[in-house]
Simulated scan of single mutants.
Amino acid sequence: MLALVAAVAALPVADAAYTATTSTPVNTFTAGTVALSAAAPAGKVFSVANAIPGSYGASCVITTYTGTAPATVRLYFTGVSGTLGNYLVARVQSGTGTQTDCSDFTSPTTLYNASAPAAGGPTLAAYLAAHTGWATGDGAWPVTGPATRAWKFEYLLIGDDNAQNSTLSFTAVWEAQT
Rank of each mutant, 00 (worst) to 15 (best):
M1C: 09
M1E: 12
L11E: 14
P12I: 09
D15Q: 09
A17F: 12
T19K: 14
A20G: 14
T22A: 15
S23P: 01
S23W: 08
S23L: 08
T24I: 11
P25C: 05
P25T: 12
P25W: 05
V26I: 12
F29L: 15
A31H: 05
T33Y: 04
A35C: 10
A35F: 08
L36Y: 02
L36C: 02
S37H: 04
A39L: 08
A39V: 11
A40H: 05
A40L: 11
P41L: 13
G43F: 04
K44M: 15
F46T: 09
S47K: 04
V48K: 10
V48A: 04
V48E: 04
N50L: 15
A51P: 12
G54Y: 09
S55T: 13
A58F: 11
C60W: 00
I62R: 06
T63G: 04
T63H: 03
T63D: 04
T64F: 08
T66P: 03
T68A: 04
T68R: 01
T68Y: 01
A69Y: 04
V73Q: 02
R74H: 11
L75Q: 12
T78C: 08
G82R: 11
T83H: 15
T83N: 15
G85Y: 00
G85R: 00
N86F: 10
L88Q: 10
A90P: 02
A90F: 01
R91S: 13
Q93W: 09
G95W: 01
G95R: 02
G95H: 02
T96V: 13
T96L: 09
Q99C: 15
Q99A: 15
T100V: 08
T100Q: 02
T100W: 00
C102Y: 01
C102N: 02
C102E: 02
S103C: 08
S103F: 09
D104I: 08
D104N: 14
F105G: 00
F105T: 00
F105M: 00
S107D: 11
P108Y: 03
T110H: 02
Y112C: 10
N113V: 10
N113S: 15
A114P: 06
A114D: 07
A114F: 07
P117V: 06
A119N: 14
P122M: 05
A125G: 07
Y127E: 12
Y127R: 07
Y127I: 07
L128P: 00
A130E: 01
A130F: 06
G133Q: 10
G133H: 07
T136M: 09
G137E: 03
G137S: 05
G139Q: 08
W141Y: 14
T144Y: 04
G145E: 11
R149W: 03
A150W: 00
A150G: 01
A150I: 02
W151A: 05
W151C: 05
W151R: 03
W151G: 03
F153W: 09
F153Y: 06
L157I: 10
A163N: 03
A163L: 08
N165G: 15
N165M: 13
S169Q: 06
F170I: 05
V173Q: 03
E175D: 11
Q177N: 15
T178Q: 12
T178D: 15
T178S: 12
